[in-house]
Design a protein around this nucleic acid. Sequence first.
RNA 1: GCGCCCGUAGCUCAGCUGGAUAGAGCAACGGACUUCUAAUCCGUAGGUCACAGGUUCGACUCCUGUCGGGCGCGCCA
Length: 553
Amino acid sequence: MKQEVYNIVKKSLEAISRESGRELNETEFEVEMPKRKGFGDFSTNVAMIAASKTGSKPRDIAEKIVSEINDMECKIVEKVEIAGPGFINFFLKDESFVNQLKNIYELADSYGSSDIGGGERVIVEFVSANPTGYLHFGHARNAAVGDSVSRLLSFAGFNVEKEFYVNDAGMQMQMLGKSVFARFKELLGIDSELPEDGYQGEYVIEIAKDIYGSKKDELEKLSDDEAEQLCKDYAYKFLINEIKNDLSNLRVEFDNWYSEKEKIHDQNKLENAQSKLQAASALEKKDGALWFKATQFGDSQDWVLIKSDGSPTYFIADIAYHDDKFERGFKRLINIWGADHHSHFTRLKSSMKAIGYDEESVEVVLIQFVRLVENGKEVAMSKRAGSYITLREVLEEVGPDVTRFFLLMRSSDSHLDFDLNLAKQQSSENPVYYIQYVYARISSILKNAEEDELNPSDKHIDSLSDELELAIIKKLLSFPEAAGSAAESLSPHKICYYLQQLASDFHLYYNKVKIINSEDKDLSSARLYLIICIGIVIKNGLTLLGVDSPKRM
RNA sequence: GCGCCCGUAGCUCAGCUGGAUAGAGCAACGGACUUCUAAUCCGUAGGUCACAGGUUCGACUCCUGUCGGGCGCGCCA
């Protein structure tokens, strides 16, 4: 519809250009849906743009355009007005909206999807937490956003893979092994202390107990180094499994679990990355270490790739990893990172630029911190202290629907207060239930209609003439745009806002009119048809957020 | 010192990549239950968009600076 309005304006511009000899037909203008009702269904700023080009008054140009449009006799246009500084507002005929419902009904689950992506391959990497402990609540926001962004992009026609990068090769893993082994020795009654930077959490003791129960004899025969190694492997398997479980309970499933050790280190990818950087003359030896001259590629400082003791840094592994993503054929590399990693972004981009990739293909969504608030006070979540709030604890208390919605409802680059009290409330204050309730109500009405032998039908949808009905239909018709815009800007929170508005419209409508009215079967059938369409959009929107649409509440 | 994010109603936040009279939810106050599920709806009140300049037809939005809050600036990951 927007396109049709655009074409009408375009045509009138061409006509005016022909008459006056002025080159107005190349004016770039926008057609948008105005915020206010009084400004029509669509609005264009074309007159203002054209005016600044030609030096004449916006309203004069608007008058010409409008009279041109009035001469054209467009089927969908009811009337056209000039308003404010020179906006041209279009009021379309009601039936042109109502008829679009059929489109929603037929497309059903795929309504709102698009082919903006054209099948382009995209990799979304997120969470990627070190498998050295349970996921804490900060990871949950990353997980929810990453997963929802992936859903948005798939819906918009991209070919998306979700990947968890497992940091199983670094110092952290060694430390985990040492920590577990120290706890194991404690169980044997041997006096031992946790390493200085060791992991203090309760789970380390639990894991040690597991090992004590099943592998005590085996372990006692080994040297300390070997025992540490065994502890590490055991703890790793245990924790990665727990992480998978937690994510699964949050309805986050990954396509790939990409092991840094197996896929990078054991495959000589580090050397590969190093030689690519060498070929770009981006390397330098200094103080016994190998440096990447990032300053030559836009960063503010240089970075060490190989330490003076010969061991690789995390950074060179990450360069190799991202090089590998491109090698695997992905055109867009999207990373969901905590805001504390922002400096790493510049570094990574400059390295990709050095190797010869388009740095614009590497995108990062930075996630600001989550504060967990209960009873007006912040709940601490320090990992090292061992007393952090885990994703699991929150999931057990409030469930995946509320957890996900709350984590998604704010823009990623805004700090988020997660109010546990509010999340736990199953009441009107809780926006998740508010939206889900729409779906439940609709399902319930449809069930009742069936019992009354009333069937939804598009035969009489012209009778949908209530102001609210038209408002809802217009809102439904803007869903594809909302989904597209959310995908484009990698912003799931836009879907949250959209759904809250739609839910509000529906509840208002529900309170105002009876959907089922056995006195007027034609109208009822049309209204049933309408609420099915509302249900479709609610469900599609919630699915993009990874939230369920229950039929009963 | 340098870099990134934020500053909008009492609170938590939107504001579609410059548009028309600034938008929700919650909290507050007043109303609507013989209900197609009241987990709902209606009404009232609430604002110098942190501050100061600049860019232009037009700025909450873009640029510069100041103030305030968060985060980062390792041969850690």
